[in-house]
Design a protein around this nucleic acid. Structure first.
Lengths: 103, 103
DNA sequence: TCGTCATTTTCCATATTGGAAAGTTTTCAC
DNA sequence: GTGAAAACTTTCCAATATGGAAAATGACGA
């Protein structure tokens, strides 16, 4: 694959999830759902995929008497996100060179 | 698909092709194949898809007595590539903003 | 025990992407 | 001309990916 594009972070929804988790220690399921704007089932599946990829950790804890899920990026996930962003920025940089030249 | 993501450039292979073509005037089929690392048929199909999307132009010309194919991004292709990259950066930025606000 | 909330899973439908292999076109060797 | 080979292109098919709706689960609270 191109440079270091991370397949597991390739889907837009997953990129968003990772972007959020890269900045906070943890994010609630409902918060992620709002940001990514997908159905419960889809978010759940994306999170599972990220867990399977070894990037995310889920923690279930009660809040206001109800069970909620909190997601966080682990070290590997942070690394993967950085790498993926790097790969994208690399592509952008190249494109901008070409554009600059043709302008 | 979210924001201004360009479906035709969504596949990693196509993103790579576009990135390569964004920095050179033309690239040979064999060169692209090596860079993207896919089979002939797959590269051929990706290029066709990009042509159908109106982003790429193919030129066939003989080299060393054999017919070869050269691909290039047209103006629309350059624009689409930029837009796509922008959309990705935007997704990340927005996700991070959302987080910043809730902090 | 029942109902509800917060996910998870299952069920489906659709779209993508990839390779193998056969087909096409052009060129070179004989 | 005929046959072989290069350089793609198409066809055929399988495997993934996504996404939503709806049913299923598990953990409370009444």
């Amino acid at each position: 694959m191109s440079a270091d594009i991370v397949p597991a972070l390739h889907a837009p929804a997953r990129l968003q999830i990772a972007a959020v988790l890269a900045r906070v220690d943890e994010a609630e399921f409902a918060t992620l759902k709002e940001i990514v704007d997908v159905s419960d089932s889809v978010l759940s599946k994306h999170l599972s995929a990220l867990v399977d990829a070894g990037f995310v950790k889920l923690r279930k804890a009660p809040l206001d008497g109800r069970q909620r899920t909190w997601a966080s990026l682990n070290a590997q996930g942070v690394k993967a996100f950085r790498q993926h962003m790097h790969a994208l920025q690399d592509l952008v940089a190249r494109a901008q060179n070409a554009v600059a030249q043709s302008e």
